[in-house]
Design a protein around this nucleic acid. Structure first.
Lengths: 150, 150
DNA sequence: CGATGCCCATAAGCATCTTATATAAGTCGC
DNA sequence: GCGACTTATATAAGATGCTTATGGGCATCG
């Protein structure tokens, strides 16, 4: 049970993350968009647009029909556009629209508006501790994604 | 725009958390249970059992009918039990069963099994940075919950 | 050109959430 | 203790978003 490095108790880490997410996931947002929807908009907005449906199924970890349906909804709402891929007649390229960027950003701002006053109640040391942990968290997410695609 | 303490860029924090969750939320689990389901089992298992439905709507941040339905499913699967509250004829007390505890714990172990090898790939400094940030993360979650119930 | 495989769409079904409403039990003023 | 309000839970109806199974069009390679 103990090949785990002792600088970090993985069990305690998971507990903390679960507790944090229980609060974080339920943060109210003005736009009522699902986790996956926002994740797709974010993926596209941060450099991914345009992207194939197939690529989105990989980044989002859901089935291909789920992405097709999601993109259909997003297109209906004017947040993305489907365009043919000139280099491959089977494929579609998903482009994010200006409205899509705005929505993604505004809901992101929402989260920050909710978080900021809570962060302000932490001690300076606590804030610094979180700041110092961000690179490690980011790296963990990368490692997790790499594992899946490999 | 800048009454935010400069030890921690809230924007960077939110970005890191979103990226981390995009990977974390999709971690495969053997038992196919929803986020809310697992959250309820966890809430009950870590000292909450027995609890009223109404209390669960507060901890889980979903509507009362959603909890009623969820508890009905959990009861059907033998993970919780409904018993009358002797001190209030309107209320029901939700007790977690041994099977419920096992399920909650096994899926928690699942997460840890997935996380541990990734954590092992971090540097010792990165692990320590995360460990040092856990109290602050926990406190943030508490502040977030306190804000809602207050 | 024909077999095989990849990319996407559609269909059907299910889980889980929502709002609106119903039922029954507690509480309080008188 | 009676009526009015409140609280705790349940039920109903509908929307959303996922799944598996399947089909059709294009690509690739012999």
């Amino acid at each position: 049970m103990n090949d785990i490095p002792d600088e970090l108790d993985v069990d305690a880490f998971a507990t903390a993350i679960e507790n944090f997410n229980r609060f974080y996931i339920r943060l109210p947002t003005l736009e009522k968009l699902s986790f996956t929807t926002l994740s797709v908009l974010d993926t596209l907005a941060s450099g991914g647009s345009p992207m194939r449906l197939t690529d989105l199924t990989k980044t989002e970890q859901v089935s291909q029909p789920a992405i097709t349906q999601l993109v259909t909804r997003l297109e209906r709402d004017g947040l993305v556009e489907r365009r043919p891929d000139p280099s491959d007649g089977r494929a579609v390229l998903i482009h994010i629209t200006e409205a899509g960027r705005r929505i993604g950003r505004s809901r992101y701002d929402d989260r920050i508006r909710h978080l900021a006053p809570l962060v302000a109640q932490l001690t300076a040391d606590q804030r610094r501790a979180i700041a110092d942990a961000l690179p490690a968290l980011t790296r963990l997410a990368e490692l997790g994604r790499a594992q899946r695609s490999g």
